[in-house]
Design a protein around this nucleic acid. Sequence first.
RNA 1: AGUCUCGUAGCUCAGUUGGUUAGAGCGCUACACUGAUAAUGUAGAGGUCCCCAGUUCAACUCUGGGCGGGACUACCA
Length: 1159
Amino acid sequence: MHFSKSGKNKPLTMSGKFQEYKQLNLSQINKDIRKRWEDDDTFHKSIYTREGHSTFIFYEGPPSANGMPGIHHVMARTIKDLFCRYKTMQGFRVYRKAGWDTHGLPIELGVEKTLNISKEDIGNKISIEDYNKACRVEVMKYTREWEELTRLMGYWVNMDDPYITYDSRYIETLWWLLKKIYNKGLLYKGYTIQPYSPAAGTGLSSHELNQPGCYRDVKDTTIVAQFKAIRNKESEFLFNDVESEVYFLAWTTTPWTLPSNTALCVGPAITYVRVKTFNPYSGIPVTLILAKDLLNAFFDPKNADLSLDSYVPGDKKIPYLILNEYKGSELAGVRYEQLINWVKPKGDAFRVITGDFVTTEDGTGIVHIAPTFGADDDRVAKQNGIAPLIISDKDGKIQPLVDKKGRFFLMEQMEEEFVSHYVNRDSYSNFAGKFVKNEYDEGNTREDSTDVDIAVMLKQENKAFKIEKYIHSYPHCWRTDKPVLYYPLDSWFIRTTAVKDKMIELNNTINWKPKSTGSGRFGNWLENLVDWNLSRSRFWGTPLPIWRTEDGSEEKCIGSAEELINEIDTAIKAGVMDKNPYEGFEPGINTKENYDKIDLHKPYVDHIVLVSPSGKKMYREPDLIDVWFDSGAMPYAQWHYPFERSENLPFPADFIAEGVDQTRGWFFTLHAIATMIDESVSFRNIISNGLVLDKNGNKMSKRLGNAVDPFETIEEYGSDPLRWYMITNSQPWDNLKFDIAGVDEVRRKFFGTLYNTYNFFALYANVDNFAFAEPLVPIKDRPELDRWIISLLNSLIREVTDGYENYEPTRTGRAISEFVSENLSNWFVRLSRKRYWGGEYDQDKISAYQTLYTCLETVAKLMAPIAPFYADLLYSDLNKVTGKDPEQSVHLADFPTFDETLIDIELEEKMAIAQKASSMILALRRKEKIKVRQPLSRILVPVLNEHFREQFEAVKNIILTEVNVKAVEYLSDATGIIHKKIKPNFKTLGPKYGKLMKEISNAIGEFSQQDIGTLERDGKFEITAGGQSIFITPEDAEIITEDIPGWLVATEGNLTIALDINISDELRMEGIAREFINKIQNIRKDSGFEVTDRVSLKIKKHEGLNEALKTHKEYICTQTLAVGLELVDDLDSGNAKSVEIDAGLETWLSVEKMDKFQS
RNA sequence: AGUCUCGUAGCUCAGUUGGUUAGAGCGCUACACUGAUAAUGUAGAGGUCCCCAGUUCAACUCUGGGCGGGACUACCA
């Protein structure tokens, strides 16, 4: 097969015949069409032919090319592609620029693996410059595979000039955005609790923490501590009936955090009890508060009956008495004494607060809060105005009580004034300098830990209720194998909380598919928004463009390369820098070459020292920014806004689509940045698609070996069935259980059928030289069957358009598939076959061709967004012959519009009756084992109303032909032989009679034939139900025929048909004739004759057959293209075949091809 | 743990504002058809609509609570 190689602007080349195919090879079609698109530059044509039209803006979420593309990328990209193609066909100029995500930890880890180095080696074994270069190579490792997959699968995205996040121009836009955010006061430095490895001296990402082996079981000393309640007006209710002190019990697995405690947290809805008892270590009477559910964890119910008075310190069995119950919310606000009085907090502290995260699964149901060492703690403390426990170091900087090496701060490292005002030298001196975990102390030899020391101390002070070893899983640093701490680290934040309301408001205007992701996962996330932690302590990423003086008093945020160059010049003049490292760069020249002269990455950018207005040196803040900022900024940065493209920014997107896992990633950062910069949404419509799982519903992974290779799949099946399967099998937002057998099914079921339908058309159209040259047969003049399929076709266009417009591709694909296999192929073509085969080239035949052609051409256009390859082949195979459409490719054509006036619901109903009736009659024949080839005389159809008779009459011939029956007889009500059945209509009765439904239903069920007749005649029927009389109207019941006594009957729904199975001699002979035709046709085919070859027939005489053959000689000859039929006494020609016409009816038959000149 | 989502035939999925016979395709079994032919059609078997409660004359459908699968987020005293 080859295609005309017409160049860009050459006219369409038309050829005379429709291409016929021997077999459907979608894999080859994929290759051929791809080549044609490349030769013809179809993709670019589809854009520039729409220049000046309305725009449709799509944002491509940049993939990272440091990993191989997988089958799930085909899924995501099919969704993206199909809407862009659809909009193109709707006449829009579609923006869709490809891009690459090139920063981030996976790249760093990849480089380290490739070069076999670790982070410590950077700067030693390998220079940062070389490392930087290695990252650039690493990140584009699989670019070729990605580009190949893009083309293979037919994803049309503009790859001419992709945006690359490490490009200096891209970074420049990020800086510009950051400065804008900075100037709005939304960028600030603060701290957050992050996993931190004191041994390695670095913060860890959650990614690093989730590496295998990081969580390990460790045995730690845990303490249930007693926090003494302060007696005052607010807490008086806790002191009823007690003489002892009142304590809150709280459990911790990290006793070293207890000195930093500043609050206790209870669950607002949790029930707590106040218990009178004794401290097991000291024997002192105490009153304790803990969660009711956890009471039994500390007190043996057997001891509840023991007398408190008889307790002697040292007794194993400790009595207790429950005094009261409280909800957590009642306890909030109560104050308590500091547990360990080493350092006084600055600000409000030592108060009971509430938090939703508190559970009663373990511990006491009261959580000890140390805001400096727990993320939850920090958050809940901030929400309640509780101060963290902090100290001031020598430099005047705020620090937690534990230093970066993992020990309690040395007093000499603290600010003098701070120590004298806030630190209790006596109690603290024993602990200052102690490592909170022995692992951090290189020279440690002792068994006991700081945790144990604290436990002993609390025990002595009657502040420990229970001390025990506890095994739990705790994260460890993957580089040092030592435990991590949750530790406050300096970070730069974007104050997203300041624009929270705006973000929520804007989100409500976005069309989410599915809706629940927008309102649920995304909406809830916005409701609970915290400030965006932008800092990352990494090497390979976008540097934060902020320079600061060492004391932090002056800072500058840089918003462009030009600004940086100017600042460098100033710094050189001030003598803080020797020379400009970016010499030669010319601001305003936006070429790659120019921007290649400046590398804004580490380490280069860190060598730049600027000068502050007051003349101090300013150093860059060492952090990089979150890679999510890179991708969230792409609406601006992909166009190098505002430097290169300063107006007509394609913004916001009309449509984006990515996996649901991007909800808090890309979707969020797009939304956040657009809200802050432009107070606008970033995207109007969004599909968040589900995962692609293996056929058993497991996640695909290379490790498990259940990952499907997209390249192999496409090579074997072609992209179209794969795309079609993915779109139609389940809704995009549901997970797809990927089963290759499903792709094969789509190939056979949908593409196979469509291909067969086309081939059928081509075969006969070529015989008749149909080329759509005749004037269009007016639709109203076409036969019923044609008008029916055209009606369905227009309904289909409407449904498909609706589906695409509403981002419901699954509905669309399924509707097309249903139309093609059920309506077009299985009904229209099947019933129309005789119209194409032989006969005159008259209006009916032309109508048949035009109708089928229109259906195929329209289907090609409707399916083109989902299955772009085959659709284009089908379209061009049709169009090449007829030249009906000026466009060479279906993707340049206009999407079909539906014509309301051609939709005939009445006709569709009639045809539904025909389909149902035919299938019922065929079922009856089968039951009686009467072949369809055997004609029968009549069917009987009861009619209850004139409308139904008209409908049936209209499709009578279709039914009779289909089931090979001669006539239909209608049985009207008057004949009295119809047996009727009545069913209550719950839909109308329900609202009227409610509770009486059961009674009414029973009453109607007992209607006699006379009763039904009365109801029909009078329009009402009186029954009694619930002691009241009720009039049933015809609308309240459905009357159907069920039986015709004495006949072979089938009933389905409201349709009843009887079949007359008496076979007269006449009918029997006709059956024999048709049987012969069938045999002869088979022999023709087996002998390899052409469809148009003429033949001569010889049949050996047989008493049971002779008469039938004589009577129907003409008929047989016409049907089989025979010039003559001879009945012979003997047939011993080698070509003769034995045929069995019916059981026991056997004879010999020969079919000879006539020479051409004889025919 | 929280949020979202899914749960209907052996498998993959439909199922309208609640209405009394819960559907399709695949697979299986049987049969038929035969100039669309490496196609096609028809039928049969196969259901606790995940479970429990509630609302209602009526629940696959609505509400609540469970159970199970998945994803994301957070990882905890």
